[in-house]
């Protein structure tokens, strides 16, 4: 056999019985159990509701979904694969391959909504719109530049968490808004599945980011933190313009911005950083919060309610056999 120079080393075979980081297995298990396909959501039940939207509302909805499709496409084809190259453990690469595939499922699911509810011509027009929209292109460019910057795995993770935990929300707002008005509720169910997945993606990539930060000297950590807040400011500027362009017509822009602030703070928390936006700026319309998380009204909590009676949790069916009692 001829002896040649190999640039690519043969990878280690992944042994899931020898973990270097138990979080890899925990997240793998969560993601695989949560696997879903758009076919499981009865989108056709939304056909009557779709016809009750005005033409302007329909166009807005299709445009918002093409914008979300673009972000999912970027994360599927560029973001998650770029992070795989930075993986510290072979199990992390496997988890990222799951994340990459689910992003493809998310991107595909918007087309399921389109084929169920919309005319081909108007969908094609919206994809053209998204390819030419300056704000959508600008935020994609900022993220892609970080994915392509060879030098910094941590900067790539920051960009990835901002995409997963912040940039999607100017789009997610709209189906939550329709859902709060009993419109397109099945589409909202599908979006909630995506929102759930993105939370785990943001958590996991943010967790790996924090492990990477621990290895840096103080000066290096400060540099990355400054970079992260700077990138968030830049992305927020674009998001604010994008939001106004989309939502001014419905008079919802300020409402959407509160949702953006709230999610930007959560993205920073995924990275282990403190919040940026003050709490007054993060008060999301309760109807949107209820659409996002149906049982999360604050009075559920003893501390927040009138305090007249204790709330004992209702029995929850858990199949966890670790409990002894």
């Amino acid at each position: 056999m001829k002896d040649t120079d190999h640039t690519r080393p043969v990878p280690r075979a992944v042994n899931w019985n020898r973990l270097e980081d138990e979080i890899d297995l925990d997240v793998w298990n969560r993601l695989t159990v949560n696997f879903w396909l758009p076919e499981k959501v009865p989108l056709s039940n939304d056909i009557p509701g779709w016809s009750q939207l005005t033409p302007g509302e329909q166009t807005l909805t299709i445009r918002v979904f093409t914008g979300l499709t673009l972000l999912d496409t970027i994360q599927n084809t560029v973001g998650a694969p770029a992070l795989m190259a930075d993986a510290i453990t072979p199990h992390e690469e496997a988890v990222l391959s799951n994340i990459a595939f689910m992003e493809a499922v998310h991107a595909r699911s918007y087309s399921s909504v389109f084929s169920t509810l919309c005319q081909t011509a108007e969908v094609d027009e919206a994809f053209r719109w998204s390819a030419e929209n300056e704000h959508l292109q600008a935020k994609s460019r900022l993220i892609l530049d970080e994915y392509d910057a060879a030098a910094s795995p941590l900067r790539r993770k920051v960009a990835s968490v901002f995409l997963e935990s912040f940039l999607f929300y100017s789009g997610f707002y709209l189906p939550m808004h329709w859902s709060s008005r009993a419109r397109l509720t099945n589409t909202a169910d599908l979006i909630r599945l995506i929102i759930r997945d993105e939370a785990i993606h943001g958590y996991y990539i943010g967790y790996k980011f924090q492990r990477g930060m621990e290895r840096l000297p103080e000066a290096g950590r400060q540099e990355i933190k400054d970079f992260a807040f700077g990138l968030l400011f830049d992305l927020y500027e674009i998001e604010a313009r994008y939001t106004e362009q989309l939502y001014d017509g419905l008079g919802l822009s300020e409402d959407v911005k509160h949702f953006l602030h709230y999610n930007a703070n959560k993205a920073l928390q995924n990275l282990g950083f403190e919040a940026l936006f003050p709490e007054e700026a993060c008060r999301v319309n309760p109807a949107i919060m209820a659409a996002l998380s149906p049982n999360s009204d604050e009075n559920h909590d003893f501390f927040s309610g009138s305090g007249s009676s204790y709330v004992i949790g209702k029995a929850v069916a858990t199949e966890d056999d670790d409990w002894d009692f």
Binding site: H300, F302, I312
Partner: peptide, 30 residues
């Protein structure tokens, strides 16, 4: 995380029911 919808802060409901103690409060992330 409210991204998990109805399952938000579910550990509080489970512990409250199992141990018969009040769920005092729920918060997101940090």
């Amino acid at each position: 995380n409210r991204n998990f919808g109805k399952l938000f802060a579910l550990s509080g409901d489970v512990i409250s029911a199992r141990c018969n103690v009040p769920l005092l409060y729920r918060f997101e992330l940090a």
